[in-house]
Design a protein around this nucleic acid. Structure first.
Lengths: 210, 210
DNA sequence: CCTACCGATCGGTAGG
DNA sequence: CCTACCGATCGGTAGG
């Protein structure tokens, strides 16, 4: 039973690094210490394996992000909490919760349809957050959300440990994406009695041209 | 001689859509109206084909972007011109200049090294532009540039024609990424005697919280 | 540019 | 979980 979990994690890492097609069943099996054919004692097919990993990763990510957002009600604070958590997930080299989303180029069309449906469902979290932001009218919320998710989901392709932490990168992204709608920006988050800024990296963020 | 160009364009389209590994020589050949083996009259190897397409695409893109920037000297205007042109290139379904960059996951390691070197060279264009921007001190220019390039380079993965044009998407990205350093933001672009805003989609862009 | 083929590798199965 | 194998597909070559 935990052997299976091990296999899922090995496969997730390989899928994330090389994509669906370029990851072979035999390579997964070898890293799990068995022969290619033996893997089919644990899995039904390569396609089913990929779908299961993707589903589990997104479910786990959704749970973690909702938990991270829970303490906040102010829109920008919720966005920051969600983005930070998402980056922690995407940039963590361990565990199943890995960047397999958005790497669908070599996935068979029928499978892709299933993955995209699941991913769209996952992204409603961000849809809700973005819709609540007091953005300037010139910004298209759909594009805003898509762009933000692109950055979060593809961060693993350029990130290498050492320079900035996931939380620091989240801060940079938030600094860029933070635009207030109203002129009375500093105090425009009206919801009271709740925390306004997340714990991580909060300080040197606000710098609205005034 | 133009037959070869045809093959390069067909291959570029397939590589962009499915990635290196998932694109077969036989599929390229079939779309070019010949047998798999016949393709080797025109190319040396699959690897060489990919490298050539990548090189040509980046050279052409660099040329177009430099030309688009040429009329401007104000930093933000140069950035907008470069981003708009880059998106026109990335979102144009025709021609060789296609989004093959950043899809290196299934490319053999040795080839990847060559591609990355070329891409880094290409991206110096944006390095120069970003270094000239009057950004607030809280923003890390390296991260800023990386994030911006991610959005430009991966736009093809979510773009579908109909809603917004490449130029309109560029405007959205620029609106998000525009942050002024100084408090006297509106007039802080000191360079005079030169055009300040590009021709495309300029109007409804500025909306700094004041 | 085609035919015909090479060795290698793929996902998957049978039988134990 | 292994051995041994299946049909399919891969990049590439020889010989024309």
């Amino acid at each position: 039973m935990e052997r299976r979990q091990e296999i899922l994690e090995i496969a997730a890492k390989l899928f994330a690094e090389y994509g669906y097609k370029a990851t072979s069943i035999r390579e997964i099996a070898e890293r799990a210490g068995m022969m290619g054919g033996s893997l089919y004692y644990h899995i039904r097919s390569k396609e089913a394996l990929f779908i299961e990993i993707h589903d589990r990763a997104l479910d786990a990510a959704a749970r973690r992000i909702r938990a991270a957002m829970a303490p906040y009600t102010a829109p920008w604070a919720r966005l920051e909490a969600a983005c930070t958590e998402m980056l922690e997930i995407q940039l963590n080299p361990e565990s199943l919760t890995l960047p397999i989303m958005n790497n669908f180029r070599s996935v068979p069309e029928e499978v892709k349809a299933i993955l995209v449906r699941k991913r769209d469902e996952f992204e409603t979290i961000f849809r809700t957050i973005v819709d609540a932001l007091p953005l300037p009218p010139g910004l298209d919320r759909q594009i805003y959300r898509i762009l933000l998710l692109r950055l979060l989901n593809t961060a693993d392709t350029w990130y290498h440990e050492g320079r900035l932490s996931p939380a620091e990168i989240a801060t940079q992204i938030l600094t860029i994406f933070r635009h207030e709608a109203s002129a009375t920006s500093e105090k425009s988050e009206k919801k009271s009695g709740t925390k306004t800024a997340p714990k991580t990296q909060a300080p040197r963020r606000r710098r609205v041209a005034a």
